[in-house]
Each structure stands twice: as C-alpha cells, then as structure tokens.
C-alpha cells in the first residue's frame, strides 16, 4: 500500500538570536509514513517538534534538509494541499463572518462549484452541530463552537487526509467527546487522520498507530498495542519511559 503521507530524513533548523547559539535543531532526521484509512497519533512533550513537523507538511516552514510528501506531491507545492484538511490549534476565525460565509469562502478556494459547496456546507455544519447557528457571526460563538467551526472548515473539501493540531485543546469534557466522536466518524468513512495531542487516553481510544517525538527525534513508532506490549505498561507509562521521564527525579 502506498503511503498517503511520507516524511523522509526531515531536518528543520531555526536561527536563534541568543548569544552563542545561532542554530536550533527543531526536527532531526525524522522519517515516517502514514497509510490510507489510518488514524495516526503524533505524540511528544511540549517543544518536541510536533507542530514544527506539521508546519513543514503544510508549507508554513521550509525544511532545512530532507523532504515531505502528501499524495506523492512535495509539500512545497500548493497543490499538495488540495486534498487535505487542517485544523490548527487555538484559531480565532474571521469574527465578522458567519459560519456559513466562512465555509463558503474556503469552498471557493478549493474551487468547489456553488451547488456542491452548499451541499457540503450543510453536511459539515450538521456534522459539527452548528447548523442552527450558521447565520450568526462567529464573534458570538463560544470557544467550543469556534473549535467546531475549525473542524468544519477542515472538512469542507471532503479531504482524504486530515491534519489536526491539538484538536481538543482548551475544550470542556463535552466538547472533547464531540470532537472524538467526529474523528471516529471520519475514520468510519475511511478518512486518514494525522493528529497531535497531549491527551494520551484520547489517543489510546482512537489511534491505530502512534509516533513519539522527543527533542526533535523520533523515539518510538507503532501500533498502540505493540508499544504497550514492548514496554509492558499502558500508553501513558510507555510515553514517559520513551521520553526519559523518571518519576521522583
């Protein structure tokens, strides 16, 4: 099976302005593959390089070395993003637009015909349960509703690959549950989901495979059950062992 997402020897370096330290290594020789229909959890402590990797996949940050491909197209090409949906962490969408207008704007960028766009807007707004408030300006939405608008925009083009950056961050338990349900529904529709999270319980529930990143390097990758078996513990303890955290120190 051909991977839908492929990262090869990816290196990302940042220039810092600190005295005596000109270059900081954010991601070091990262390689991984995600296959169609998979839900792939991208784990790591803060500063591990997860968001940087996602930024490279989306073309926001150039790779210093190595390469990344989505649907076999180099991520530097805008067309690579035609069949993906992206939900960034903590985004405040154009508050002067309504949810419907926001989705129509994004649909236009994907060149979705008007009739098809209307159908998709209805569909995704129902999916994220914002159909009733579609004509209200986004500025009147709660944080959870804004996050669901984000999810709706990520789904507007009916993407084959979803990249979600901390999709449940800042949400209350009901909001988290709703987002988790949506991800599982997407999985049942055969979508591929690549997402980062700190919520290991959530990852354990929904992910087929996970990768654990620490200090820019890939420390472990595999099925959740395989990792639990390898480290003889649950995913949370396995994660702590992989990143070298020893309780009591």
């Amino acid at each position: 099976m051909k991977p839908i997402l492929k990262i090869q020897d990816l290196v990302v370096e940042y220039r810092t302005h600190e005295f005596g330290q000109k270059v900081k290594l954010a991601v070091n020789r990262l390689s991984l593959e995600v296959f169609p229909g998979e839900i792939f959890g991208f784990l790591g402590p803060n500063g591990a390089g997860k968001t940087t990797t996602m930024n490279v996949l989306l073309g926001f940050v150039p790779a210093s070395r190595g390469a990344a491909y989505i649907f076999n197209v180099n991520v530097r090409e805008p067309i690579a993003r035609q069949r993906i949906g992206y939900l960034p962490e903590l985004t405040y969408y154009y508050k002067f637009l309504t949810a419907e207008e926001l989705l129509r704007f994004y649909a236009r960028i994907f060149r979705i015909p008007a009739a098809e766009a209307d159908r998709r807007i209805d569909e995704v707004l129902k999916l994220v349960e914002l159909d009733a408030v579609r004509k209200r300006p986004i500025k009147t939405y709660s944080k959870g509703m804004q996050q669901r608008v984000g999810l709706a925009q990520a789904l507007i083009n009916n993407p084959d690959l979803l990249i979600l950056d901390e999709p449940t961050s800042g949400l209350d338990p009901i909001g988290r549950m709703k987002v988790r349900q949506i991800i599982q529904r997407l999985k049942s529709q055969g979508k591929t989901v690549f997402f980062s999270s700190h919520e290991l319980g959530e990852v354990e529930t929904v992910c087929d495979r996970v990768a654990i990143l620490h200090q820019g390097e890939l420390r472990a990758m595999g099925r959740v059950s395989d990792l639990e078996e390898k480290y003889k513990c649950n995913l949370e303890q396995a994660f702590l062992k992989v990143v070298g955290y020893e309780p009591g120190l």
């Binding site: 989306l58 926001f60 805008p78 992206y86 969408y93 984000g150 990520a154 083009n157 990249i163």
Partner: peptide, 8 residues
C-alpha cells in the same frame, strides 16, 4: 494557518 493550508 488554515488559509495557507488550502491550495493557495
């Protein structure tokens, strides 16, 4: 971010 994550 969501804007430039589209084919633009």
């Amino acid at each position: 971010f969501p804007l430039l994550a589209k084919p633009i």
